[in-house]
């Protein structure tokens, strides 16, 4: 029962924050991905950095249970699936979490995203043996360094995992601060507005 209460409180907080940072708005996703406004990218980078520093700092101080970590397996399909998600993300302006939240926020096109998503997930359920037989789903649950108290294999065994986590988290925070708001060239001036007077 406590688990369900936590699901409601943390889930509602997550949905609220996603809505308030503009992640449920496909315009903000599109502007981030076409590099014309990286405000949301700065938000996400800072969030990953803050979460990482708190997680590994908390572990070093003994305040966070290492067993609560859950590292996913790295395999070839992660990369292929990432490319697919990236294409659909750009096209629709939604990812799974922001899509369901956008639907709840009152966007009708998100309903079609979620419907397509349910069909896509069903298609994967049926085609799972194909990918498994190809050996695309084989891998290890690597972390960057060796995290004390965890059983995950380390990609760089000599690296201390919790310190690495704090360092990488700090790097994310720094990148969030120095990333420019806009990368793509300036907006083309509207016709005639900038024509110099003769």
């Amino acid at each position: 029962m406590l688990q369900i209460a936590l699901a409601i409180v943390i889930g509602a907080a997550f949905g609220t924050v996603l809505d308030r940072i503009g992640a449920t708005n496909p315009n903000w996703i599109g502007r981030m991905l076409n590099l014309t406004n990286l405000h949301l990218m700065k938000t996400i980078l800072l969030a990953i950095g803050v979460a990482s520093v708190l997680l590994f700092g908390g572990q070093m101080l003994g305040l966070v249970e290492v067993a609560h970590m859950s590292v996913k397996t790295a395999y070839v399909g992660v990369f292929i699936g990432g490319i697919m998600l990236g294409l659909g993300w750009a096209l629709a302006g939604y990812c799974p979490g922001t899509g369901v939240c956008a639907l709840a926020s009152g966007r009708i096109d998100a309903l079609f995203f979620v419907a397509g998503g349910l069909l896509g997930a069903a298609a994967y359920m049926l085609s799972y043996p194909f990918w498994a037989d190809l050996g695309m789903l084989e891998g290890e649950k690597w972390t960057l360094g060796a995290v004390p108290g965890a059983d995950y294999p380390a990609a760089i065994p000599t690296l201390q995992g919790d310190l690495a986590g704090i360092a990488v988290g700090a790097a994310f925070i720094v990148i969030a601060f120095i990333l420019p708001k806009r990368i793509k060239g300036r907006r083309a001036p509207l016709g005639g507005a900038e024509t110099p007077a003769e």
Partner: peptide, 27 residues
Amino acid sequence: GGFIVLYGARLAGGCTSGHMMSGMMQT
């Protein structure tokens, strides 16, 4: 877009939340 996103996310074993955010915060 929804179809491609969820097919890809399931092939990858996670999405923007599970892989990108939760994953990278855990290194």
